[in-house]
Amino acid sequence: MINVLFVCLGNICRSPMAEAVFRDLVKKENLSDKIAVDSAATSSWHIGSPPHKGTLGILKKYDISAEGLVGRQLKKEDFDKFDYIVGMDVSNTKNIAEIVGHPEHSKILRLLDLTDHKKDVPDPYYTGDFDETYDLVTAGCKALLGKIRVEHKL
């Protein structure tokens, strides 16, 4: 099983959105038996909380399931469990490396580095623009799935 973890600051906006979008892509490509998806936060602010209403709204708009999305915090052990640990911004990737104790490891990456955008996914908790975040997350998830398909010959 290939394990993918999406990470943002609070695990209520960007990373659960990415988890749901990626899980939906994986399901549509009939790869659910090969790829598992989760999300986490670098902070402890929203442990046990559901996604932000803006994230839930955008997922509903695109008919993407939000089932099972619950905030949790990144743990050191996640480094061994996951093959890809994907941060939404530079700050996330730095915090991921610090938390798991593996600075600059190839399994830790920033989502939009896989796209032509090469920037951070803006946090809609602060911007209020869940549509922009959804569009960028979707582009990043499609690129990540392409990378995984090539690297694992799927």
Score class of each variant (00 low, 15 high):
M1H: 12
I2V: 13
N11T: 11
I12P: 04
R14Y: 00
R14T: 00
E19D: 09
A20C: 11
F22H: 08
V26R: 11
D33S: 12
I35K: 12
V37G: 00
D38S: 15
I47W: 15
G48K: 00
S49G: 14
P50K: 10
P51K: 10
L56F: 05
G57I: 13
I58G: 07
I58S: 11
D63R: 13
I64E: 00
S65Y: 11
E67L: 14
G68F: 05
G68Y: 02
V70E: 06
E77G: 15
E77P: 12
D78W: 12
F79K: 03
K81V: 01
D83K: 03
Y84W: 04
G87P: 02
M88P: 06
D89V: 01
N92L: 01
T93I: 07
K94I: 11
N95S: 05
I99E: 08
V100A: 06
G101V: 00
H105G: 03
I108M: 06
H117Q: 09
H117R: 06
K119Y: 06
P124Y: 11
P124G: 14
Y125T: 04
D129R: 03
E132P: 09
Y134I: 13
V137N: 01
A139W: 13
A139I: 12
K142Q: 14
L145Q: 02
V150Y: 05
